[in-house]
Computed example of a mutant assay.
Amino acid sequence: MQPKIGINSEHLAAVAHSLSQLLADEFVLYTKTKKAHWNVEGPDFYNKHLFFEQQYTQLDDIVDTVAERIRMLGHYAPGTLKEYLELTHLSETSPEKNDSLSYIRQLLADHESIMIHLRENINRYAATLKDLGTSDYITGLMETHEKMAWMLRAHLK
Rank of each mutant, 00 (worst) to 15 (best):
T65Q: 15
L59I: 04
A77G: 06
F51H: 05
D61F: 06
V66S: 05
E83W: 01
V66R: 05
K82D: 14
E83F: 04
E83P: 01
E68F: 08
I70G: 03
E68Y: 08
V66Y: 03
Q55A: 14
M72Q: 15
F52E: 01
N47A: 14
L50W: 01
A67N: 06
Q54M: 07
V63F: 09
K82F: 09
F52L: 09
Y56D: 02
T80S: 15
K48F: 15
K48H: 13
G79N: 10
Q54G: 12
F52D: 00
E68K: 12
T57K: 11
T57R: 10
Q54W: 00
D61S: 13
V66M: 07
H49I: 04
I62H: 11
Y84M: 10
M72D: 11
L73F: 03
Q55F: 01
L50A: 11
A67I: 05
V66N: 04
T57H: 10
M72S: 12
N47T: 13
H49G: 08
H75T: 00
L50K: 13
T57L: 12
Q58C: 08
Y84G: 06
G79R: 11
L81E: 10
E53G: 10
T57P: 00
F51N: 00
L59Q: 13
Y56H: 13
N47P: 00
L50S: 10
P78V: 14
I62G: 00
K48P: 00
T65K: 14
I62K: 06
H75M: 07
L81F: 15
I62P: 01
I62A: 13
F52M: 09
D60P: 00
H49D: 03
L50R: 09
A77E: 03
L81V: 15
K82W: 02
Y84I: 08
I70L: 07
Q54V: 06
E68A: 11
Y84P: 04
L50V: 12
E83H: 12
G74W: 02
D60G: 12
D61V: 09
H49Q: 10
T57D: 14
I62W: 01
F52Y: 15
I70R: 04
P78D: 08
N47R: 11
G74R: 07
L50D: 03
F52A: 05
Y84L: 09
Y56V: 04
Y76T: 11
Y84R: 07
V63M: 10
I70D: 01
R71A: 07
V63A: 09
N47L: 12
Y84C: 08
V63E: 01
D64H: 06
D64K: 10
I62C: 06
K48R: 12
Y84W: 11
G74I: 03
H49M: 09
L73H: 02
D61Y: 04
H75I: 00
Q55S: 04
R71L: 14
A77Y: 04
Y56T: 04
A67Y: 04
Y76R: 08
E53D: 15
T80D: 10
P78S: 09
V63S: 03
R71H: 06
Y84N: 06
Q55C: 05
G79S: 14
I70M: 07
Q54A: 14
P78W: 05
L81C: 11
E53A: 14
G79I: 11
L81S: 14
